[in-house]
């Protein structure tokens, strides 16, 4: 099988402190991969380097056989690499509709913008609030809006940084449904999440990071019984 999105010995340091060290991971279309690990394990930094927020200090990032290590974020997005942020990252002062329109504008072929906007809004159940300022909708709706904005650029791989943090149980269900639908559409989904119940429910594969390094990778069953993972999490609780 052709490799889709992968990293080779990816490294990022902050003032000599290794935040991500030699991480080699690959992601596959139609598969939900969760990255877990204690706080400060380097998960978000890893995503930041993969998506271009931060520059890599070593190693490579490849997408569809192409070296994208040094591309700026907007170029990666137009190739098909999307992401959401830990702290919801939307245009607070614009309406929900305008929020969705901005990413749609960057599509190469400008098909019917209005129609596409409607499609996305209804896909994520946001039609009712489409004319409301994004700052005034619920936290869960904001998370969904951010996903809608990511989908607008038609990504082939989507990094979700803690999509379930701080949402109500009902909203959580809606967001998980959306994540499953992404998988069905054939996207590679990379999920960073602290909520272990949800992770084990949705993830097909789990990668475990600890102190910047990848310490385990496998299907949920394997990870559950991996001695190093258990040690890390118990160690983290002390």
């Amino acid at each position: 099988m052709e490799k889709f999105f992968w990293t080779e010995n990816l490294t990022k340091r902050f003032d000599g402190l290794v935040a991500v060290g030699n991480v080699s991971l690959s992601f596959t279309p139609g598969v939900i991969t969760a990255i877990i690990g204690p706080n400060g394990a380097g998960k978000t930094t890893f995503v930041n380097v993969c998506t271009g927020v931060l520059r890599a200090d070593g190693g490579k990032v490849y997408f569809r056989g192409r070296d994208i290590t040094n591309l700026p974020p907007d170029r990666r997005v137009s190739l098909g690499v999307g992401r959401t942020f830990q702290i919801t990252n939307i245009f607070q002062g614009l309406t929900v509709r305008e929020n969705v329109r901005i990413p749609l504008l960057s599509r190469k072929r400008r098909a019917d913008l209005e129609e596409e906007t409607e499609k996305l809004l209804s896909l994520l159940n946001l039609q009712d609030v489409s004319e409301t300022l994004a700052a005034n909708i619920s936290h869960g709706d904001q998370k969904l809006l951010e996903m809608a904005m990511c989908l607008a650029v038609e990504p082939e791989i989507l990094f979700l940084d803690e999509p379930l943090a701080g949402v109500t149980p009902a909203e959580k269900g809606r967001i998980i449904d959306v994540i499953f639908s992404l998988k069905e559409r054939g996207l590679a989904v990379v999920l960073i999440e602290h909520d272990m119940d949800s992770v084990f429910k949705v993830a097909d594969e789990i990668a475990v990071m600890h102190r910047g390094e990848l310490i385990a990778r496998g299907v949920p069953e394997e990870i559950k019984n991996d001695q190093r993972v258990i040690d890390v999490y118990l160690g983290g609780l002390e």
């Binding site: 700026p72 997005v77 504008l105 960057s106």
Partner: peptide
């Protein structure tokens, strides 16, 4: 940042 991640 979001504009950047909207592909612009």
């Amino acid at each position: 940042l979001r504009v950047l991640f909207s592909g612009h």
